[in-house]
């Protein structure tokens, strides 16, 4: 009897270890499987982050101008020497503006000019532009305070390029 019992127990143990092996082959739960799961999740996060980063860079270009270009035009519009109020530029103060400081320390070339409704332009700051390389421009509507209390409408344009 004991021999038969022992034989049955051995047969049962052998069968369960066989099914454990089958489950282990086709299922989850092992050390290597957990490593693989973490790798897959990490790869997914990396892929989505990279895609969103490229998409954000594409949007930056779509909005017009690079990030430095927008920083420069924002600096011009908020410079209290040149802009006494929102979108109002006092050109009598243009000579007192430290234009290079508006770059914010970035190693870029820059030109700033105004276009008026009659088609004339006025250059506020200019550096020699290179013929090649990445260049960006951005424009914003502004009022220009002139002598005699007249206020004209103008388009402020900033060009930025990377030397």
């Amino acid at each position: 009897m004991d021999r038969e019992k022992g034989s049955a127990a051995e047969r049962y143990q052998a069968s369960t270890s066989h099914w454990d092996m089958v489950k282990d082959r086709r299922g989850w739960g092992g050390f290597y499987e957990s490593i693989m799961a973490m790798m897959i999740v990490t790869a997914g996060i990396v892929l989505i982050t990279a895609s969103l980063t490229f998409m954000a860079a594409h949007e930056d270009r779509g909005r017009g101008g690079g990030p430095e270009c927008r920083e420069v035009i924002r600096a011009v519009l908020t410079d209290r020497t040149l802009a006494p109020s929102d979108r109002m530029l006092d050109l009598r103060q243009a000579d007192k503006v430290d234009w290079t400081s508006l770059k914010g320390g970035a190693d870029i070339g820059m030109s700033v000019f105004l276009t008026f409704a009659d088609g004339t332009t006025r250059t506020l700051y200019r550096e020699d532009m290179q013929d090649q390389g990445e260049r960006y421009s951005i424009s914003e509507p502004v009022n220009i305070l002139e002598r005699g209390g007249t206020v004209s409408a103008s388009l402020l344009t900033v060009w930025v390029w990377y030397p």
Binding site: R87, M88, E140, P141, V142, N143, G148, G149, T150, V151, S152, A153, S154
Partner: peptide, 19 residues
Amino acid sequence: EAAHTVLLRSTVNDSRGNP
């Protein structure tokens, strides 16, 4: 919005020639 603000603040001569 910015273009509209700039237009409204710009000066033009009235019928008497005053800005």
